[in-house]
Design a protein around this nucleic acid. Structure first.
Lengths: 216, 216
DNA sequence: ATTTGTTTCGAACATCTGTTCGCTTATTTA
DNA sequence: TAAATAAGCGAACAGATGTTCGAAACAAAT
């Protein structure tokens, strides 16, 4: 994804989208883009958008007004732009994460009714991605230094690597265990010699534990 | 601008706008709002928006799709909401805490040259008071579920109670141990059978550990 | 010069979105 | 009880927005 393969017009369009989005706090319409870069037809703007979409710079939702957004790659580039433009202003990045209470199998984990409260944490602690907090029940992970009533920050992902500490859904209840695949089976390993490994073939991986928080 | 004059429905609408805006990175349409809060008519959503607009909570550009934004006052309130983390009881603020690096005996612990970086944490996690962060060296507290490279939040205080986990200054280096007074002596107890208790009569108590943070 | 591909334009169209209106329902007030 | 107010609904309408299509302008290559 090299910027050098962009035409002047394409750079102009990307920059206009960034600027308009910052000014109005919402993505621009095709007509707003057309006017911003001096195109006299909406179709021309759409043509440019379609090109950038195909090149992977933009995402767009069909038939949705202002449905333009930067793709992951495009976002990365935009952030570099912004960082270069205003280098000293370090706006601390924060993530607003829900503390999930009741867990119901089947339904979406992050449904509104499951959320007890919200907490805002620095991104330096939990990283990027979709994060939620889970309160730890029991002492099955004590040898991994995770105690009862600790809060774990979980980044949503469907799979995991061997050795990752994951939050998994098993029989309507969430559990935190070490993830291990072996002999074609998935195991959820407690880190406490008083507990036995759990066969996790039927378990649903909610995400990977990326941080541990404990209030004393 | 008191929140108490808001009806349940109005609170619901404000919250939905905030949530949808965060999820989609653009303000919602009236129909999206209607569906989000369970209103079956677009007109009902507009009715609510008009109310909130008149009350000064929202701004809206006429005839512009997704033209809804929080007014200055509304934004202020939203930020308070976020800062408060919507916790049911705790209207906690945020605390800006320094991560202390090098420790020098004698001098003030929180001197500027000792501070590596700053982190902003929710007060619900670390509580009130003068707080600093310390990176843990070694595994002497492993049985208290505090590992090497964990960060402990320390609330500054000169004394401690038996059983408290404290940060203490001993021979120019900071250490985290369990505090115990017995037979007129102060002991700093490691929580790892490989280590021996330390006589802490000469140690300077920096403060009490009130939280543990671990990034994985 | 001809061809080819890219880009722009204008217009028509389909869909989305905001607005208005009359009517109902429930709640509050007189 | 009756009137008034608040809240919601459905439908129709108008304006905004995305989409499609054909034609024209333009540049580069043959």
């Amino acid at each position: 994804m090299d910027e050098s393969q962009l035409s002047d017009r394409q750079r102009q369009v990307l920059e206009a989208i960034r600027r308009l989005k910052q000014e109005t706090d919402m993505p621009p319409t095709l007509r707003e883009i057309a006017e911003a870069v001096g195109l006299k037809s909406v179709a021309s703007a759409k043509y440019q958008i379609d090109q950038l979409k195909q090149m992977g710079w933009l995402d767009q939702i069909d038939n949705v007004s202002r449905g333009i957004s930067f793709s992951d790659q495009g976002t990365r580039h935009q952030q570099e732009q912004e960082a270069a433009a205003e280098s000293n202003v370090h706006l601390g990045n924060f993530v607003r994460v829900p503390l999930v209470g009741r867990i119901a199998a089947g339904g979406p984990i992050l449904a509104e009714q499951n959320i007890d409260e919200w907490m805002t944490l620095p991104e330096s602690l939990v990283g990027k991605g979709e994060i939620f907090l889970l309160k730890v029940k029991g002492d099955s992970m004590i040898d991994a230094a995770i105690c009862e009533d600790d809060m774990v920050a979980v980044r949503v992902q469907k799979t995991a690597e061997n050795g990752d500490i994951v939050a998994a859904l098993l029989d309507d209840s969430a559990t935190v265990k070490t993830f291990k695949q072996r002999d074609g089976h998935t195991w959820l390993l407690p880190r406490n010699s008083n507990y036995e490994p759990i066969l996790g073939d039927e378990a649903q991986i909610m995400g990977k534990v990326v941080a541990v928080l404990r209030s004393l």
